[in-house]
Amino acid sequence: MNHGLVGKSIRELWPATVMCGLLAAVFEGLVAFILPRFQAQMGAQILEMEFVRRVIEGMLGTRIADQLGPEIIRSIPWAHPIMLALVLAHAVICCTRMPAGEVDRGTIDIALGLPISRWQWMWTDTVVWIGSALIVIVMAVIGNAVGSSIVSKDRVMGLHQAGMIFANLLGLYLAVGAGAWLISSLGNRRGKVITTVFVLIVASFLVSYLEQFWEPARYAGWFSALSYYRPAEVLRSGQWPVRDLCVLYGASTVLWGCAAAVFIRRDLCTT
């Protein structure tokens, strides 16, 4: 790894990492603190409404019974759209910087004029990206633990549960990030790349919700991110989601590999 490139990547990523990490921590803490107070009320009233129940099922990626058990309540902060938006926004910010962001900003000529290989650049940026992803998700886990511990020490997730959620969320994060990187490798305008990724993410989440109400949408279920990120199921079963993790990490590896292949071979310069 090139130290100069590491320094540059860290300098460019730390503001987004600190901001997304802090917001995720605060959100996790608040929701973990507030939600248990409404557990009984939610079970009794909200779930009686079929539509609301299905929306919650779409969000959690699993069927819920008539009662919202403690595991379901505990999983809501992890599947909440705000939490996912914060974490995935970080992935999109990080993974569209290079090369689309560099070409768009016009700095690619200066960077490529230096004695670094494209592979070296890709590899260095990936290491810094994954490092920053770990920071954001760890901050969210810490926020959740702090919020839960205020309610009751028993509500804090154990290491095993936290590990499973962490691995599942990181898998989702990496898959979205690697996809964004591939689109970035193909593009020259960061705005267009971000828009494309955003549309794909929204479409993917939309499929999860549509599946609950519209039978044909189930055929597109494989495209739904929430089919592979199911914190409620993970917490309820206590089993590692091996299939989901394989899909997410496998997709991340393939997408990242394609992004690297495109980036290394393509023509690059300010347009």
Binding site: N2, H3, G4, K8, R11, G106, D109, T270
Partner: peptide, 26 residues
């Protein structure tokens, strides 16, 4: 040593930090 025709530099850098950064890369 290369100077692009349409030179764009990282806006957050100072002259000194740019020199240090390129020095570290090289």
């Amino acid at each position: 040593g290369y100077l692009p025709g349409d030179l764009r530099l990282y806006p957050w850098m100072t002259g000194e930090s740019a020199l240090r950064w390129i020095g570290r890369v090289r």
